[in-house]
Write a protein that binds this DNA or RNA. Structure first.
Lengths: 355, 355
DNA sequence: GTGAAAGCGCTAACAC
DNA sequence: GTGTTAGCGCTTTCAC
C-alpha cells in the first residue's frame, strides 16, 4: 500500500526537532552543543535531555557546509599495502582523532593522474588539508591544491637543507645513509654493495649521498662500490642482491636505502648460501616493524615515523588555521619542520668483516 | 592595510558563479554537471567552458547535504598497522574509487568504546555505510548503526553457515582450518601443536574447529594436540611456539590459525634450533603478502581477500541503495554473501614428518 | 530547454 | 539568555 513514503519519525533527528522537543529554538541547541553562547542552566539541561532522548547526532556535512571547513584530512600514499605506510597512517589517524577529524586514505598507485584526481575532488571540499607521502605526485598539482584552500604537507621530506617549495616535515635521510654506511665501515667492511630504491623523484638520493659521504670520510672510494637500483620492495631487493652477489662474490656487506629491499637482500643471500651476518652483513633504513621480526633481525637506521606523523598533522593544522590570513599561502616561504635525527639500531644482520 | 578581508575572486568558485559566467542559472549548471536535465547543446558548451575557465569543482559536503547521501564509507579495523588490513583496505579503496566514494579509516585499537564513538559520529552523516573487520565491536552498536541509516557489512565473517544477524561476507574458515590440518596429516604428522589466536568474539574458533574436524577424520584424537591461545601477532606466535615446543619437544608440526603467529612460530623454531621444515613443519592461514616472503616461505591456506573486499563493497552499496525501501533494515533476514573457498598454498615451511 | 524558489541541517550575526 | 534570520553550496520540483 503506497502510503506516505517518508515515515513519520524514523529518520535521523535534526537540530530543529531537538529544539522543538526541548521547547527552544535551534540556535539555542546549537549553542549548548558548541558551548558557545550564553545558555541558562535549566534550558541547557532540557536541551541535553532532548538530545539524549532523541539520540541526536550532528550531521557532519551540514556542519561542514555552514562552518565552511572540511571535516577530513586526506593522506596520499602510493599504496597502503606497502608495509611502511600503515605504521605512518596509524600515527596520523591517532593524531587526527584527538581533534575530531577523519582520515581519508588515497592510494595513488604511484600514478600522478590518480593523485591529481583525488586532489581535485577532495582538496578544499571534503578535505581541509592533504598529507603526502612518496606518492609520486606532481608538485605543481600540490601547489595548486594550496591555492584551492587545502594546505599540503609533505611528510618525510628527505633533505632538511633543501626546501621542496612546499611545507614539509623533513627527516635527515642523508644522515641515515651515512649512519648505516659508517656502521658497516666501522665493522671493517670495505667491499660494500649498494641497493638504491625509488629512483623516481630522486627519493633515496639523499640516502645514497650519505653512503658516499661515509665512504669518503673513511678514505674509501665510493665509486668502487657497485650500485644497483631496485624497486622499493622485498622482491626488488632480492633481485638486486642476487645480481650484486653473483657479479661481485667478494662483497662482504650490502647497504640498502630501505628496509624492504634489505630484507629481500637477506633472503637472496640465504638462497645463495651466504651466511648473514657471518659472511655477509646487511643494513637497511627506516626500521619498520618487520625489521625486528626477520631472522636474523635487521640492523637498520631508525627514522622517527610517529613523530613525523604528529609533526605533519600539527603543521597541517597550523596551515589550515592560517589559511586566508595575510592574503595567502603562495608567497611566504614554505615552512619546513625538522624531525629528530635518525639513529642506528644494531641487530643481528651485521657483524665484523671476516674476509 | 586592512581592506576587505574577503578577496574578490580567490575563493573557490561556486555553482552560482559558474552560472553567472555562463549567463545561465545554477539549475542549468547543475543539470549539465549531472547530465540530468534536458539542456540545449549550445548552453551545455557555454557552461562547460565556464566550468573549465573558473576551475570549478563541486563542493562535496554541500552536495551531500542537498542529496541526502554521505560521500564516504568507513572501514573499521583494530589497527591498520596489522599487516593483513592494508591489503584489504587497498582492495576496498580501489572498489570505492570506481564509484566516486571515499574511504575513511577507523582504527579501533580493539576498543569497543573507540569503535562506538566512530560509529556515532560517522554512521549516516559523513559515511553512508560501514565496513567492519575484526575490530572487536559490539554487535548491538552495529545494529544501531543500521537503524541510523548507515548499513553495516561484516567483512570476513568466519562461519558461512551461521548468520551473525548482520549482513556479511562470509569466508569458510572452518574449511581453511581443515585444509591446513589435513595437509599436515597427509604429510604424516601426528604430533601437532595448535596456536589459536584472537579468542575474543570466538574469532578463529571456526579455524580451530576445522583443525579438529581434520584430526577426527584421520582417526586422530584432537584432544591430544596441545593448544595455546596467542595474540594475533608475530610476537604472540613466537611466544606460543616457544612454550609449545619446550613443553612438547616431540611435536613435528605447528598449526597456527593465522599467518602472523605462524611466522612468529617459525622464528621461535629457528631460535630453538629446529630446522623448518625438516624437523618441524609450520602452517598458517590467510596468505598475507609476508607469507611468501619469509624464509622458508610459509605454507598457508589462502583466503580470498580481494574478493571479500569487493563483495563487501558491493553488498554495502546494495544495502545503501535499498535503505528506507520496504520499511527498513531490521526485520528481513540479514544477507550473507559467501566468498570463494580458501585453498591450500604449499610452500617451504612444511615437509613430510621425519620423526 | 531554462529559470525561480524551496530546502537539505547547521552556524553565526544580531535583535530582543 | 533566547529567538530571528540569513546564509553555506548544491539539488530538485515545478512553472514558464
Amino acid at each position: 500500500m503506497p502510503t506516505t513514503p517518508t515515515s513519520t519519525h524514523s529518520s535521523a533527528p535534526t537540530l530543529a526537532e531537538v529544539a522543538r522537543h526541548a521547547g527552544v529554538t535551534s540556535a539555542t541547541v546549537s549553542n549548548v552543543l558548541r558551548s558557545r553562547g550564553r545558555v541558562g542552566e535549566v534550558t541547557r539541561q532540557r536541551v541535553l535531555e532532548a538530545i539524549a532522548a532523541l539520540g541526536y547526532r550532528p550531521h557532519l556535512p551540514a556542519r561542514a557546509l555552514a562552518e565552511g571547513r572540511a571535516p577530513t584530512i586526506a593522506l596520499m600514499v602510493a599504496s597502503i599495502a606497502n608495509p611502511f605506510y600503515p605504521e605512518f597512517a596509524l600515527a596520523v589517524e591517532n593524531a587526527l582523532r584527538r581533534s575530531g577529524q577523519f582520515l581519508i586514505i588515497c592510494n595513488t598507485d604511484g600514478d600522478p593522474h590518480t593523485g591529481r584526481a583525488y586532489l581535485e575532488q577532495l582538496a578544499g571540499t571534503l578535505s581541509a588539508g592533504v598529507l603526502v607521502m612518496n606518492a609520486n605526485l606532481d608538485f605543481d598539482d600540490l601547489r595548486l591544491s594550496e591555492l584551492r584552500g587545502a594546505p599540503v604537507v609533505l611528510c618525510m621530506w628527505e633533505k632538511p637543507l633543501e626546501s621542496p617549495g612546499l611545507p614539509c616535515v623533513a627527516v635527515d635521510f642523508h644522515l641515515a645513509g651515512e649512519l648505516a654506511a659508517r656502521h658497516l665501515i666501522e665493522l671493517g667492511h670495505r667491499r660494500i654493495g649498494a641497493i638504491v630504491g625509488s629512483k623516481a623523484y630522486g627519493i633515496h638520493a639523499a640516502r645514497y649521498d650519505g653512503f658516499v659521504t661515509a665512504m669518503e670520510a673513511a678514505g674509501l672510494d665510493p665509486a668502487a662500490a657497485p650500485v644497483i637500483h631496485a624497486s622499493d620492495t622485498t622482491q626488488g631487493g632480492y633481485a638486486a642482491a642476487r645480481e650484486l652477489l653473483s657479479r661481485h662474490p667478494d662483497l662482504t656487506a650490502l647497504f640498502a636505502t630501505n628496509d624492504l629491499p634489505a630484507l629481500g637482500a637477506m633472503q637472496a643471500a640465504a638462497d645463495l648460501g651466504f651466511d648473514v651476518p657471518r659472511q655477509l652483513s646487511v643494513v637497511g633504513i627506516t626500521d619498520i616493524h618487520l625489521a625486528s621480526e626477520s631472522r636474523p633481525a635487521l640492523t637498520t637506521v631508525a627514522v622517527p615515523t610517529v613523530e613525523a606523523a604528529e609533526l605533519g598533522v600539527a603543521l597541517l593544522r597550523e596551515l589550515i588555521a592560517g589559511t586566508g590570513k595575510s592574503g595567502g599561502q603562495g608567497e611566504r616561504e614554505a615552512k619546513v619542520c625538522v624531525a629528530s635525527p635518525p639513529h642506528l639500531v644494531v641487530r643481528a644482520s651485521t657483524a665484523p668483516a671476516s674476509r
